[in-house]
C-alpha cells in the first residue's frame, strides 16, 4: 500500500491540502507548516523542544505543542491558532484577546499567543476554573517578561465577566 501523498488539515475553519514531498516533508513540524506554508505567524517557535509553550495550538480540541508534532501525523485534523480566535466576519477580537489587551497581560508578547491558546483550551473544558487550576494549566507556558500576574488578572476578568463563550 503506498504511503499517503497528501495531508488534509482544517486550520481555523479553512481546509488545506498539503502534498508530501512538495509542500511539506515528513520531518516538518506542525509549527513549521503553520508558519512557513500557511503564513500563520501568530504561532511562535522558541525553544522548539516542547518546553516553553509558545507554539501552543488547539489540535482536535486539545492544547498541544505544535513544535513537537509532525505535520504528517495531523492528516484529517482540525487546528485552531491565535489567528482563528477573532470573529472572521467582523474582525472583533475574542474576549480573551481583548482582556489581555485591557490588562496589558504581556510585555514583549512573544509568549502571549501560546498562553491565550492554553487558556482557551482550559476555559472550553472548564469555564469556571479556580486560580490553582489556571496556574496548573499554564505551568507549561513560560514568560521571560514576568507577565504571569497580569495574565491571571486578564483570565480571571474574563471568567468573572461572564463574557466567555458569548
Amino acid at each position: 500500500m503506498p504511503d499517503k501523498s497528501t495531508i488534509n488539515l482544517v486550520v481555523n475553519g479553512k481546509p488545506y491540502e498539503l502534498m508530501i514531498g512538495k509542500d511539506i516533508i515528513p520531518s516538518d513540524t506542525l509549527a513549521e507548516t503553520l508558519r512557513n506554508n500557511l503564513g500563520l505567524l501568530g504561532t511562535k517557535i522558541s525553544c522548539d523542544r516542547g518546553a516553553c509553550g509558545t507554539c501552543t495550538v488547539i489540535l482536535n480540541g486539545k492544547a498541544v505543542l505544535s513544535c513537537t508534532i509532525l505535520t504528517v501525523e495531523c492528516d484529517g485534523m482540525s487546528v485552531t491558532t491565535i489567528e482563528g480566535l477573532e470573529d472572521p466576519k467582523t474582525g472583533q477580537l475574542h474576549p480573551l484577546q481583548q482582556s489581555f489587551i485591557d490588562h496589558t497581560a504581556f510585555q514583549c508578547g512573544f509568549c502571549t499567543p501560546g498562553i491565550i491558546m492554553t487558556v482557551k483550551d482550559l476555559l472550553d473544558k472548564n469555564p469556571k476554573p479556580t486560580e490553582g487550576e489556571i496556574k496548573q494549566a499554564l505551568s507549561g507556558n513560560f514568560c521571560r517578561c514576568i507577565s504571569h500576574y497580569e495574565v491571571l488578572k486578564a483570565v480571571t476578568a474574563v471568567i468573572e465577566g461572564g463574557e466567555y463563550g458569548k
Partner: peptide, 9 residues
C-alpha cells in the same frame, strides 16, 4: 511529568 501540554501528548 513535565507540563500539562506534554501530558496531553
Amino acid at each position: 511529568v513535565a507540563t500539562p501540554h506534554i501530558r496531553t501528548m
